[in-house]
Write a protein that binds this DNA or RNA. Sequence first.
DNA 1: GTCCCTGCAAATCCTTTGCACTCCT
DNA 2: AGGAGTGCAAAGGATTTGCAGGGAC
Lengths: 135, 135
Amino acid sequence: MKAIKYSRQRECIKTCLMNRTDHPTADALYLSIRSEFPNISLGTVYRNLKLLAELGEITRFSCGDGSEHFDYTTEPHYHFVCKACKAIYDLPKELVRENSELLTEPAPGRVDSHAVFFYGECDECLKKQKSSNSS
Amino acid sequence: MKAIKYSRQRECIKTCLMNRTDHPTADALYLSIRSEFPNISLGTVYRNLKLLAELGEITRFSCGDGSEHFDYTTEPHYHFVCKACKAIYDLPKELVRENSELLTEPAPGRVDSHAVFFYGECDECLKKQKSSNSS
DNA sequence: GTCCCTGCAAATCCTTTGCACTCCT
DNA sequence: AGGAGTGCAAAGGATTTGCAGGGAC
C-alpha cells in the first residue's frame, strides 16, 4: 500500500467539502476551491476526491443526473433529490437502521452498504409552481 | 407534445429489454440488438431508451459504475449490486412499501419515486474468494 | 406530403491518466 | 534523496446532437 503524504490541496478539499451541505460535484467543489487555490487543477480535485472516497473519509454517490456527488458525511443516511432544481437534501438517518435490517434475509450476498434516494419536487419548487400557475 | 410514431427499432429495444433481467446499459443492449438489427446505431438505442424512460415505460437508474442501467420493470423494487462482478440483482419488493411510508413525514417535498441500492458481494463471488484463499 | 425516426459522425460532458516538475518527509 | 502530489493537457468513456435520407400515417 502506498504511503500518503500531506498536501495543502487535499486538506483544502476536505475542509471545503466539510463546510458544504449541498453534496457538490467535483466541478462545483473545484470552482469554490479556486478562490483559495487559484492554480489548483480539476484533475487534482478528482484525484483527491477519489482517494478520499477510497479511504472512506468521504462518500461518493450518483443520483442519476450524470455526475458524481460527494458528501463529507460517511454515516449512512438518505437523500431527497428535487427533480426540478436538482438540489439534494439529507434526510434524517432514523430511517436507515430499519431498512438495512429488513434486507439481511433475502439478500443474494453479503451487504456492506446501501444507498437510498427519494425523488420528487422540493417544497420551494412546489411553491414556485403554484404562484406561476395562478395566472 | 410531439406525436410518436411506430418504429421497428423501438419495438425491438423494448422486447429485448423485457427479455433480460440483468439491467443492461445502453451499450450492452445495443450489442444484443445488433443480432436482429445489424445496422441499428448506438445513437438510436440511446434516443429510444431516453424516450421510453420519459414515457414511463421503462426505468433508468445509475448505481455508481459510471453508466446508466435500464430496467423493463417499472414497479418499485430494490437492487443489490455486487461490487466484485458488477452484477445487479432484483430484490423482493415486499420491502418497498414500508420504506416509502417511513419517508412521508420528514421529506422536504413531495416524493414521486425512490430508489434503493444495496452494495456488497454476491454469494457467487464470495464462494470464488473462499476457494482461492485456500492456497 | 408531412413529420417522426434512423444511421452516421461529430460534439459534448464527465472523469481519468501520462508526464515533467514540485513539495513533503 | 526518494517518492508522493500537482498542474497541465491529452485521452477515454458515456451520452447527446445535427443532419440528410427513409419510413409511418
